[in-house]
Amino acid sequence: MQREILTITNLTKSYGKKEILKGINLHVSRGEIIGYIGPNGAGKSTTIKIILGMEGDYGGSIKLFGEDIRQNDIEYKRKIGYVPEIADVYDNLTGYEYLTFIGQLYGLELEAAANKSKILMELFGVGEAYHARISSYSKGMRQKLLIISSLLHNPDVLFLDEPINGLDANSVMIFKEILAQLAAQGKTIFYSSHLMDVVEKISSRIILLNEGKVAADGTFAQLQEDNATGTLEAIFNELTGFHNYKEIGEQFVSIVQEVK
């Protein structure tokens, strides 16, 4: 089995005159949990959307499963799971209807999709809502629905953008274990989040994008060694040049406390 699953070579992307990606190079292997981080506007979402086929007109090349995604337009997408940061779901559908619809889109038979999705919802603590309309779901329940829909077809690569938004502490623990089990089975996971403590704990490798370029790439221990700082948040601030957060916080509070 080929070990390298994703190869990105000199990836560039512009919107008009604005250059978003400025030559990204990455080699990603099976079984890695990659913390894919960076400030807003660094190019994280753009990179992922290009890999997913949601953005075109880019420079450089991307090989997924050993094939250029430009030459393999549809088939490779069947092996990908995706949880976007903001997702629209069909509120008028039930959990059963939504998950079996997604399952069939990925080639599962209706009965198989129904059985699998019912068990997964029960394991995730939302089995009682399986036949309820999504419009009645809480934020956490919707997030669990999205996570299940991204995994229903047993993808080889998973892209997660702020996936634990709305989850309670117990569900976060379950989710972390799910990721660890998937990685142990050779699944590759891109985990994008602004929660640095979570990224620090779950990632086997961390890639930091800043201003359209890779600013850091390695294990957390390697990043610590290279930057002589403690937490991932401190490394993030150092590499992105963000040092005045204390001053901004102080000014913010002083304005809030001003007497009219």
Results as ranks from 00 to 15, higher is better:
M1A: 13
M1Q: 05
Q2P: 14
L6A: 08
I8N: 03
K17S: 14
K18A: 08
K18I: 14
E19C: 08
L21S: 05
K22I: 00
I24S: 06
V28F: 02
V28E: 05
V28I: 15
G31I: 07
E32G: 08
I34M: 10
G35V: 08
G38H: 11
N40R: 03
A42C: 03
K44T: 07
K44G: 11
T47E: 08
K49A: 01
I51N: 00
L52Y: 04
L52S: 09
L52C: 12
G53C: 08
E55Q: 14
G59C: 09
G66T: 07
G66D: 04
D68A: 08
D73C: 00
G81F: 05
Y82I: 02
Y82Q: 01
P84D: 05
E85S: 12
I86K: 13
A87D: 12
A87V: 05
L93W: 05
L93N: 00
G95M: 04
Y96D: 03
Y98W: 09
T100F: 01
F101V: 00
F101W: 14
F101Y: 15
I102Y: 00
I102M: 13
L105R: 01
Y106I: 04
G107S: 10
G107W: 10
L108F: 13
E109L: 09
E109W: 00
E109D: 15
A112G: 00
A113C: 06
N115F: 00
K118D: 01
L120D: 01
M121W: 01
E122D: 15
F124W: 14
F124G: 00
Y130Q: 01
S136M: 13
S136D: 15
K139F: 04
R142I: 11
Q143D: 13
Q143I: 07
K144L: 11
L146C: 11
I147M: 10
I147V: 13
L151V: 11
L152D: 03
L158P: 02
L158E: 07
L160K: 04
E162F: 05
E162N: 07
N165F: 02
L167M: 12
D168C: 09
I174D: 12
F175Y: 13
E177F: 00
I178F: 14
L179N: 04
L179T: 03
Q181I: 11
L182R: 08
A183C: 06
A184V: 00
G186W: 04
K187C: 12
I189G: 08
I189V: 15
M196S: 03
K201Q: 15
S203Y: 03
L209H: 08
L209V: 09
N210F: 11
E211A: 12
E211K: 15
G212K: 01
V214F: 02
A215C: 06
T229S: 13
L232H: 05
A234Q: 15
A234G: 09
A234N: 10
I235W: 07
I235C: 07
F236R: 03
N237R: 14
E247L: 14
I248P: 00
G249N: 11
G249W: 02
G249D: 11
E250T: 10
E250K: 11
Q251H: 09
Q251F: 07
S254W: 00
Q257T: 08
E258A: 14
V259D: 13
K260A: 10
